[in-house]
Computed example of a mutant assay.
Amino acid sequence: MTRRGGSGPGSEGPEGQGGGFRLSHLDALESEAVHIFREVAGEFERPVILFSGGKDSTVMLHLALKAFAPAAVPFSLMHVDTGHNFPEVLAHRDRVVARHGLRLCVAAVQEFIDRGELRERPDGLRNPLQTVPLLDGISANRFDAVLGGGRRDEEKARAKERVFSLRDEFGCWDPRGQRPELWQLYNGRHSPGEHVRVFPLSDWTELDVWQYIAREKIELPALYYAHEREVFSRAGMWLSPGEWGGPKDGECPQTRRVRYRTVGDMSCTGAVDSDADTVEAVITEIAASRLTERGATRADDRTSEAAMEDRKREGYF
């Protein structure tokens, strides 16, 4: 945590007088997230970080490393792999895990399909199929706290959720039964079989995330930056061709200069036309946007007004 005091920048009081210290906006968000990680370490026995290699989970892991440095992060990592993830993101995930000597548990949707425990959807989407592998992984490893990179600005169902969000013995979420969180006091109490989802980035926005990436020089998969890519149009989004089922007849691939604001299952994550090939250019682009990344590029959130909330009630993260 960076503290500024004396007569240096950021130390001025309300009328410009020196005195005490004041955290910058990003320092305050970082301090809050570090506090949350340490609270989890103190309250829970077997916490796990959901880590996909995307920007939010990469920032979250960066914060966890800061929270416990110079000691190792006392949490495992888990990724629910749909089998249709972007290869660039999986490669980044594996590099980060190897670099920091972390333990990664992968819950693969394909294994559940092969065993007959899940069935492919007619629309080819696998994001909704992640709930069963996620809950199975939590139960099998006896994780009692699951840290995710969800933010309140992403989607209205996520805006309802507390930082510490209780899940019942079936992994389900009741939005009407949430606990108050006054003055950053978090309640991690849970009964046997229950667990708590924890969201250290709840108060961050997409712009905050990118400004922090710029400040901390955090490495991300290259597809977050503008690049030439073969894509095709479906339901108003540019999707990448792949074995997941695209393109279909009449969907003509073309090469465009695009980037991804969010990365998930290739079957439902769209690219946006962009020339933003640096962190600074991405920040400028986001500052001018009036759509969240999920609202602009995630087909699975468009199935109904309550699509995300319905999935979260069932155990989705």
Rank of each mutant, 00 (worst) to 15 (best):
D153T: 09
D153L: 03
S202M: 11
R179W: 05
P192D: 05
Q130N: 11
L135T: 01
G188T: 12
F143I: 04
R142Y: 01
N187Y: 03
V196P: 04
V146P: 03
L201T: 07
R151D: 00
L134T: 14
G188S: 13
V146C: 13
E155I: 04
P192F: 06
P180A: 05
E169W: 02
E194R: 07
R142G: 01
Y186R: 13
C172Q: 15
Q184F: 06
H190W: 01
N187F: 08
V146K: 07
P133G: 11
H190S: 12
L134W: 07
D168S: 05
R167I: 12
W183S: 06
I138W: 01
E194G: 02
R167S: 12
E181T: 03
S139Q: 14
S139K: 14
R167P: 10
P175T: 04
R162C: 10
K160T: 06
H190V: 01
N127V: 09
V132A: 15
S202D: 05
Q184R: 14
D174E: 08
R176K: 11
F170T: 12
D174C: 06
G137K: 07
A159S: 14
G193W: 06
R142Q: 13
A140R: 15
N141P: 03
P180V: 05
E154Y: 06
G137F: 05
H190Y: 04
